[in-house]
Design a protein around this nucleic acid. Structure first.
Lengths: 254, 254
DNA sequence: GTTGACATTGACGTTACGTAAAGGTGTATA
DNA sequence: TATACACCTTTACGTAACGTCAATGTCAAC
């Protein structure tokens, strides 16, 4: 497929001026110029523009983008993996800002207190790069706490004791599962303990327990995207592992 | 607490130049100037800077920020709620970009195909503001498609027919549920049809069906955050509605 | 009394385009 | 065949939100 400035602009969501500017500074040159002097872009240029836009979205200057992309060592696929990582970081930052604004709202309603420092959490993007680890963990802990608090407010129809019990059980279950996963053996002691804890957790919601339904849930964890994603978030493969453990636990598999 | 330019700058993660500029354009004036001509900021200014940074993060120009914040009708709390909404939208955009980069990586590995249009999904932020609804739905549909596709690749252990059937069933179930929700009556015909479709969907994973387990799942949809979030995304209250419908369907509730 | 980290006000530079202005190209229609 | 209209071109000046000197004053400490 060949594109003129406007067509490519519409496709990518940028102005024709931007494309001309990118040509001018040598960051994205058209594949060829036709007899009337029109810029014509091809497949390679489309892909290159996509790369540029990924960088731009992540706040990289056009100068840096040129440096990066024209370097002989430039590896497009590697760059994509970096984009992926950076985007995940950015999402974390947004999550932080969301938590911040939620907290600030709670502050105006007099429900909580906030230090001045907390009021700017999530804004300092650059710091994230520097002392990433320490700062990262610190905030994740805070955010985690806050999530728990939020969840608590929503499950008012559970009694406090019920809530505490199911929360504790859930935590124990998840940590046991995480450890079991490392052993790699779904028939092992740890994995079977996780399966049992899962059963206990389930029976909090079920009046009657059946092996078939339990095994069905296990299948669902793998086959349904939203479950699988949840379990695989920390350690990919966990959903399958859990399924196997439960299938063994329920006697559906040797 | 009182702050000088540098102290406030460090607190908020902005440069002193930025603070002086904000003073210059009248968007954030210090509480007072001390005898040596130093800018001194107080509590009110801290909060105002936080508001400004929220707007800035969302791409609002400083001119617009001034217009908004100096308007007599300006409501700080309302603004916070808007920030919240916008941040959620931004997160969706980031999610789109993440999906995009994942797809692009898959493309380079030859696992999938991608149209040129798909390559730029998630970049067009501005359009989101203009024709928000139409465009928003369009991409959500696509994103949905992609999720399905992804899921498809992962559920290889299902036969094609099984997969098609369960997908169709799932779609029918969700759309029936959405329509039923609008009627507001969990005992109504539509809602009961949704509950029945849900049962059919479940039995795809379960070998044996029990009313108790079905009712238990329904309870779980409300009590567990990650389920509730999923169902309430489009229309808040859907999780509760579904629970009630299923409880009636299973005869657990009148 | 000098050092060093603060603060101040100009003032010019930079990035990534937006926005005309003045004109050529391609094609459908009156 | 003319003309309307939506494209394209280059040239050039404008702008937003600061960064970056430069020249200078302030304050606490040694």
């Amino acid at each position: 497929m060949e594109y003129t400035v406007q067509k490519l602009g519409k496709l990518a969501g940028v102005s024709t001026r931007t494309l001309r500017y990118y040509d001018e500074i040598g960051i994205l040159k058209p594949a060829r110029i036709n007899s009337s002097g029109y810029r014509i872009y091809g497949q390679k240029e489309v892909d290159r523009l996509q790369q540029i836009l990924f960088y731009r979205e992540l706040g990289v200057s056009l100068d840096r983008i040129r440096e990066i992309m024209t370097a002989p060592s430039f590896d497009g696929v590697k760059a994509l993996h970096e984009h992926h990582k950076k985007l995940l970081e950015k999402r974390e930052q947004i999550d932080l800002l969301i938590a911040n604004v939620e907290k600030t709202i709670a502050l105006t309603e007099g429900r909580i207190k906030m230090t001045d420092k907390e009021k700017f959490e999530g804004f300092k993007q650059k710091l994230l790069d520097d002392n990433e680890k320490k700062y990262g963990k610190e905030i994740r802990e805070k955010y985690g706490e806050y999530e728990v608090e939020k969840s608590y407010n929503k499950v008012k129809n559970m009694t406090q004791e019920e809530y505490d019990a199911v929360t504790k059980l859930s935590e124990e279950y998840l940590s046991t599962l995480a450890e079991a996963f490392k052993t790699g053996d779904p028939a092992g002691k740890q994995a079977q303990k996780a399966a049992d804890l899962h059963r206990q957790w389930l029976t909090f919601y079920w009046d009657s327990y059946s092996k078939e339904a339990h095994a069905g849930i296990a299948q669902m964890y793998v086959k349904d995207e939203r479950f699988k994603e949840y379990y695989d978030k920390e350690q990919p493969g966990t959903a399958e592992f859990l399924r196997d453990a439960i299938l063994i636990y329920t006697g559906m598999k040797k």
